[in-house]
Design a binder for these strands. Structure first.
Length: 900
RNA sequence: GGGCGGUUAGCUCAGAUGGUUAGAGCGCUGCGUUGACAUCGCAGAGGUCACUGGUUCGAAUCCAGUAUCGCCCACCA
């Protein structure tokens, strides 16, 4: 044998820790993450969903890296100029909160330090965490272009944000207005509808008597009972509404009621929004603290009284309850109502309340001046933000994967309302609007120091924009918009986008609206931010619970990667579920993925050991004539795999694709091909080396998008032994493209048969409890497959440890003690020391039952005229072949039963 | 109140355009260290594909309905 130096040079087990950082550095230093702009080639671009700068990457980011990197590496290996554009998000509320908590440890609030110092302090935090986040991506193998890394508060993005704002403002889509908003008393800011969660709470429905006022302002003994879950808001009541069609209250409409305790007179109004069947059919109207009541108040010109302040406490409007918290005020009011006989009765009642999606504080609906984006207004004839965003999807310019999410997207977009974009925070994009003391308002991109109209000093609007306003610009802004940059011209529109389905509305929807709007000069076919958007599911813990800090079940992807290897982590999350579906995460899956990496490692180790110091030429199609049956088989199987990989990748079936490659390498290459050719290799036959090196090379290439580190490490050694035009690194090597050179259906059928025969032999060995070390004689009697069985006899002798003799059907099996089996046309006889006739009979009878049942079903179907006329020919032919084989088998079984 | 998804082996999940006896990993049982790999190999047990009805020559796959779990949307005083 030749030298074993190269194979033995690899340690016997794959050790990710000793490989990953070195390999990553090698890629990055070679500049492979940075695409070269080539006008003759279509680029592949994908923008990374920017993680919040507030902290660590979680499993969701790990999954995203696995998905994106697989797509990116696949395209890069196809030769596409490939750009994966990374970034981080300033994450307004989340980040501000982190810094406020830091301050709180020093006993300070943000107001103590002031806006400027607070923002500076936040920047210090950001600088520290940004590089940390990038390092975390690196550890997972993300081949993103760090030279283009973008932060959502970079000057370039500020310019993009302001330009967008100004354009929308000038077209009247952005406006400032007094509306009912969701106010979070904890964060002390307005929120958009999307940032509201609803929680069911067990509460009470309080029925309160509102006396009717007679002539002269005196309360009458008669009263109207209203039902409310929030009695404390009655201090802000300015009316009571009933349905105008409700007979019970018909004559009450227009009369005045006396607000209990407070003593204010309020009118009864008729409004269709009131449902007669709910409660008493009469509802107290508090326009200052309820969105519905706000609407009713608008319709009936009712005054608005705001009685709750921005921290959730009662203000002076609450009279005797001023200064109390909402909860205290509720208790006090109920006590007073009861004391004075106004509380009619109380019922248990479960309803949902809006809470802040971040801190779960119960939100206060308040009328407030905020900035809004009107997504339905036409900015040009026939064009609105939401309308364009819907059409891009319905007309197929943007594809949603999986497609079922299309409906969710469209349904949301159809019902979308104006977006509250201002936040009362300090960290973020400050609104580019300036006011002067003469009430002039200026909205412009550049900073302003004096009023262009009157020259007076100006003050910038203090609010900042919703974080998603800037994220929504990502694809074009990250590429340089509003400037006309090379990147923007070349890489926009981006190809794919990928995110968890949970941020479809927050992010995907906004990117589509903003992209189409800002890039509209490009025309419909080139203005969309991306051509496909992929929605992946959430990763839950092993019990299916959502991973949250409070549950303490959060898994750090870097710990997983450090324990099992980044490749194992990536493979595990990628194959854990299909796109769009949630997956449960457990170490078991990581373990098997790690084991596969090790299996691959040892496969390569074996091949390299056998190759020694040779340089191998790839198999040429002309070699087929000289190749053994199993050589032709594995080459044919490889070619089929390449075809399947191509179509699966194109269909974004990444998990299925990885699984199929793994199945091939494990189940066909390792389990069968390698085992079968060992005897030939031992005899110095070098043909299998050609095949082994080629198949391993292609396998590593195809697996690289999924398991980049181990494949690159192995390929670095393998390439030294392949006499071919090779790239220096696998990351930029060509991806196997399926040709039609090796497809060989006959070889596939033959080897499948040989494998089944081997399985049957082994099965008999195990069932008959033959000595593991024994080499029993085996006689095969076959017709059509006899040549294949003879060709592979040496292999079978080796892999199943037998002494094989292949006979034609004309020959008879010699006398002696045999255990019999059958595979299609092949009768398998394994020599036995002795046979237990009863056990053998039982086994044969069971098998006979199964086989004759199968034959009957086939016969019945084949006898069916409709089937014969409608089914495709290959199905019928296949079934007939199976029937023939099954009949042979039945005959054989009967014969053997008879001879027992 | 609308909408969506899941329900396949003990567990976690695959099964594209319907097609011959439904797969993998883990777990389980038995055997095994034949120089790539015990992070391994071989063999085996284990499934009426949630249920009912329909379409079809043929259904895990398509249609309708039911059950159950989960999710999303919606201004339920």
């Amino acid at each position: 044998m030749t030298t074993q130096a190269n194979g033995s040079a690899l340690p016997p087990a794959y050790e990710p820790a000793s490989v990953e950082s070195r390999i990553y550095r090698m890629w990055e230093e070679a500049g492979h993450f940075q695409p070269k702009i080539d006008p003759d080639r279509e680029p592949y671009t994908i923008v990374m969903p920017p993680p919040n700068v507030t902290g660590e990457l979680h499993l969701g980011h790990g999954l995203e890296d696995a998905i994106t990197d697989a797509l990116v590496r696949w395209h890069r290996m196809q030769g596409d100029p490939t750009l994966w554009l990374p970034g981080e998000d300033h994450a307004g509320i989340a980040t501000q909160n982190v810094i406020e908590r830091e301050l709180a440890k020093e006993g300070l609030t943000r107001h103590d330090v002031g806006r400027e110092a607070f923002v500076e302090r936040t920047w210090m935090w950001v600088r520290k965490y940004r590089s940390r986040i990038a390092d975390q991506h690196r550890q997972l193998g993300a081949s993103a272009d760090w030279s283009r890394n973008t932060f959502t508060l970079d000057p370039q993005i500020v310019k993009a944000v302001r330009t967008t704002f100004v354009n929308l403002y000038e077209q009247g889509l952005i406006y400032r207005g007094l509306r009912m908003i969701n106010w979070c008393p904890f964060h002390e800011t307005a929120l958009s509808d999307l940032e509201v969660d609803y929680e069911d709470i067990a509460a009470k429905l309080y029925y309160i008597r509102y006396p009717i006022v007679g002539e002269g302002g005196m309360p009458l003994p008669d009263y109207v009972v209203v039902a409310t879950t929030r009695p404390e808001t009655m201090v802000g009541d300015t009316g009571v509404a009933v349905n105008p069609a409700d007979d019970r209250y018909e004559e009450k409409i227009g009369r005045m009621l006396m607000l209990p305790i407070i003593g204010r007179e309020i009118p009864v109004v008729g409004d269709d929004a009131v449902k007669p069947e709910f409660g008493t059919g009469a509802v107290k109207v508090t326009p200052g603290h309820d969105p519905n009541d706000w609407e009713i108040g608008q319709r009936h010109d009712l005054p608005v009284i705001v009685a709750i302040d921005l921290k959730g406490n009662m203000n002076d409007e609450a009279g005797p309850y001023a200064g109390m918290s909402v909860d205290d005020a509720r208790a006090a009011i109920l006590r007073d109502l009861e004391d004075e006989g106004f509380l009619d009765h109380v019922e248990d009642y479960t309803h949902s309340v809006g809470v802040c999606s971040r801190c779960k504080t119960v939100l206060q609906p308040l009328p407030s001046e905020q900035w809004w984006l009107d997504v339905n207004k036409e900015y040009e004839h026939g064009h609105s933000l939401a309308g364009d965003a819907m059409r891009a999807v319905t007309e197929g310019r943007i594809g949603i994967v999986p497609q079922r999410f299309e409906k969710v997207y469209l349904n949301w977009m159809e019902n979308i309302r104006d977006w509250c974009i201002s936040r009362q925070l300090w960290w973020g994009h400050q609104i580019p609007v300036w006011y002067c003391e003469n009430k002039h308002t200026t909205c412009q991109v550049n900073d302003l120091d004096k009023c262009p109209e009157c020259g007076a000093a100006v003050r910038q609007d203090e609010d900042v924009l919703d974080t998603w306003f800037s994220s929504g610009l990502a694809p074009h802004a990250d590429l340089g918009w509003p400037d006309d940059t090379d990147d923007l011209r070349y890489f926009y529109p981006t190809a794919d986008m990928q995110m968890g389905y949970d941020i479809m509305f927050f992010w995907c929807a906004r990117m589509i609206m903003f992209g189409l709007y800002n890039m509209r000069e490009r025309g419909e076919e080139r203005s969309m931010p991306f051509r496909h958007v992929l929605f992946h599911g959430l990763i839950r813990d092993a019990k299916g619970e959502k991973m949250t800090k409070s549950r303490g079940n959060v898994v750090d992807p870097l710990v997983a990667a450090a324990t099992f290897g980044a490749d194992a982590f990536r493979l595990a999350v990628l194959t854990g579920a299909t796109l769009g579906a949630d997956q449960k995460y457990s170490d078991d899956r990581l373990t098997s993925a790690r084991n596969f990496a090790n299996k691959l490692w040892n496969t390569a180790r074996f091949v390299l050991m056998k190759v020694g110091d040779r340089r191998i030429k790839r198999p040429h199609p002309l070699d087929r004539e000289t190749f053994a049956l199993e050589d032709r088989w594995i080459m044919s199987r490889l070619e089929q795999l390449e075809l399947d990989v191509d179509s699966l990748m194109k269909a974004y079936q990444l998990g299925e694709c990885a699984r199929q490659i793994e199945d091939f390498l494990r189940g066909e290459l390792c389990d069968w091909y390698i085992e079968m050719v060992k005897p030939r290799l031992n005899e110095g036959d070098e043909r299998p080396l050609k095949v082994l090196v080629h198949v391993l090379d292609h396998g590593l290439r195809m697996l690289h998008p999924f398991m980049p580190f181990v494949t690159e490490e192995l390929w670095q050694t393998l390439r030294e032994h392949l006499d071919d035009d090779m790239a220096s690194q696998l990351i930029v090597a060509w991806f196997p493209k399926s040709g039609n050179n090796w497809k060989d259906a006959a070889s596939e059928t033959s080897i499948e048969h040989v494998i089944e025969v081997n399985r049957t032999i082994r099965n008999i060995r195990a069932e008959k409890k033959l000595e593991a070390g024994a080499r029993p004689k085996v006689v095969l009697r076959a017709s059509a497959y006899s040549a294949a069985l003879k060709d592979t006899a040496a292999a079978t002798n080796f892999t199943s440890r037998v002494e094989l003799e292949v006979l034609d059907t004309s020959a008879t099996i010699p006398a002696g003690e045999w255990a019999f089996g059958r595979v299609a046309d092949t009768e398998v006889a394994v020599a036995l020391p002795q046979v237990d006739a009863a056990v053998e009979r039982a086994r044969l009878e069971k098998e006979l039952g199964e086989s004759s049942g199968h034959a009957e079903r086939l016969e019945k179907q084949l006898a069916n005229e409709t089937f014969r006329s409608k089914a495709p020919a290959h199905v019928i032919a296949g079934m007939e072949a199976t029937l023939a084989e099954t009949k042979d088998k039945v005959a054989g079984l009967r014969e053997r039963l008879g001879s027992l």
